[in-house]
């Protein structure tokens, strides 16, 4: 079965698809509508570009949010 293997927040994650955008990944992770920020291979991708940014096998994504802290 064709799949796409990414590393998301340090965890190897397999998507059951051969092509996807960052917006697809966000939806698959259940993060739509949440306030997040994403780094793809060390570069920040602005929210407005999720739909036009393809992900490729081997990509490393960091998806972060704001949590309580001092």
């Amino acid at each position: 079965m064709a799949s796409l293997t990414l590393t998301v927040n340090g965890k190897v994650t397999e998507l059951a698809t051969t092509s996807a955008t960052l917006a697809d990944v966000v939806a698959l992770m259940g993060l739509e509508g949440k306030r997040i920020a994403i780094e793809r291979n060390g570069e920040i991708v602005p929210r407005s570009r999720y739909a036009s940014t393809p992900v490729a096998g081997g990509d490393r994504l960091e998806i972060v949010g704001a949590v309580g802290g001092g």
Binding site: M29, K34, R35, A37, G65, V67, G70
Partner: peptide, 20 residues
């Protein structure tokens, strides 16, 4: 107010309350 930036829990319940 200060906040920390941390990896999001993936696949968590979307209705879970957030700090924001």
């Amino acid at each position: 107010v200060t906040v920390a930036i941390r990896r999001t829990n993936l696949g968590q319940n979307a209705s879970e309350p957030s700090l924001l």
